[in-house]
């Protein structure tokens, strides 16, 4: 597996983490836990956008592995 593919895999698993955290943020009952989940989702989002930038760069460097 190339580095690009590995990074993509991590990226997609992080995206799934983020969406699950989002669900918890929406359905948690006390405002306190809801806020904690929302904050966590935002932090994960920051990591996701950094990784996305990295994937773009990798695809630019190795266009033969471009895809999805």
């Amino acid at each position: 597996m190339t580095v690009g593919a590995k990074v993509k895999q991590t990226l997609s698993s992080l995206k799934s983490v983020k969406s699950t955290v989002d669900i918890y943020a929406a359905q948690s009952q006390p405002a306190e836990s809801s806020a904690a989940f929302r904050e966590a989702a935002e932090m994960v989002n920051g990591v996701i956008s950094d990784l996305e930038k990295r994937v773009q760069k990798l695809e630019f460097e190795e266009p033969q592995y471009k895809g999805l």
């Binding site: 918890y24 836990s33 966590a40 932090m43 990295r54």
Partner: peptide
């Protein structure tokens, strides 16, 4: 550095969500 920084960020997220 970017990877290390983000790993640290996720670790903080884990710390934060652990009780939940």
């Amino acid at each position: 550095e970017m990877y290390a920084k983000n790993a640290g960020k996720l670790k903080r997220v884990m710390e934060k969500l652990k009780p939940y």
